[in-house]
Design a protein around this nucleic acid. Structure first.
Lengths: 152, 152
DNA sequence: AGTGAAAGTCAACTGTA
DNA sequence: TACAGTTGACTTTCACT
């Protein structure tokens, strides 16, 4: 689907705060409540908006340690790759996993309680997955920016 | 604050779908509607839930090209660092920016339309920020996992 | 901390232009 | 595609356990 200026602004508003009422949105967009309602439904039905979620503050739930892990596989046969991706996706500590270009095969974003928990995660969970050749971890010293909002 | 088993389950449910009504949640948690309401308010007031947002599907808005950029600064005086972090945070293409340990200083997650848009971003926006020493980009071939939900 | 019921507000669906 | 009005469902508050 295509987006006019109002759609784009609406998406920005909903990505910033999805708990706004249609009336609040209608005032910001200079539209009627029904028009806002119909535009939102259209965005939902077309799969542009995939879901609505609550965002949790890491430091409030003692999961303040973030690391990025590069991973190289030993070999890259279809079966190995599929199995690795499935097992990694099942790890709750892994929030993101990307197959990337470059020296390593994968980049993982891992979130745990502290360095000790990270060590445990590496030893007991990640490297217990077979076919991993080598890993290289980078620790987050400071989160400069983190948003889920895509500018349309 | 501390979380009992019900809080943890409630956080998981809200991180999966924040549009559920308190009635639906009350059934899943075997609680009254009011009890659910009060637990949610407590999580919000304590800052555990920072906000509610709509998640947008990248491929539906032609922002399907994701890259990770390593960045090294020329020098690391306080003034340079602050200025760099501020300017990077203002770039809409940069969804995430972390100060990290290792060979490079920063890791950025960048989302744009395509390779050409990425080239433009690098030339016109990113490297036009002063003090950048070197960069190293990795392109996402496939997104294996991506979740915003933290397991409490 | 929990509950049930009352009061106010909203989403969702009509009709109509 | 936009609007206004109606209805049932929801959030929020309150008195009480």
């Amino acid at each position: 689907m295509t987006f006019d200026a109002i759609d784009k602004k609406l998406l920005a508003l909903l990505q910033a705060d999805s708990k706004q009422t249609n009336k609040q949105l209608s005032l910001k967009l200079n539209l009627s409540v029904t028009a806002v309602y119909e535009r939102i439904k259209k965005l939902e039905n077309n799969g542009v908006i995939s879901k609505y979620v609550a965002l949790v503050k890491k430091d409030k739930v003692e999961k303040d340690f973030v690391a990025f892990c590069h991973i190289k596989l030993i070999q890259h046969s279809q079966a190995y790759v599929v199995k690795f991706e499935k097992e990694v996706a099942n790890l709750e500590e892994v929030l993101e996993c990307y197959h990337i270009s470059g020296d390593y095969d994968y980049l993982l974003k891992v979130i745990v309680e502290d360095m000790e928990a990270f060590r445990e995660f590496m030893v007991n969970k990640l490297t217990s997955i077979n076919h991993i050749g080598s890993t290289h971890s980078m620790f987050v010293i400071n989160e400069v920016k983190h948003t889920t909002a895509i500018t349309v």
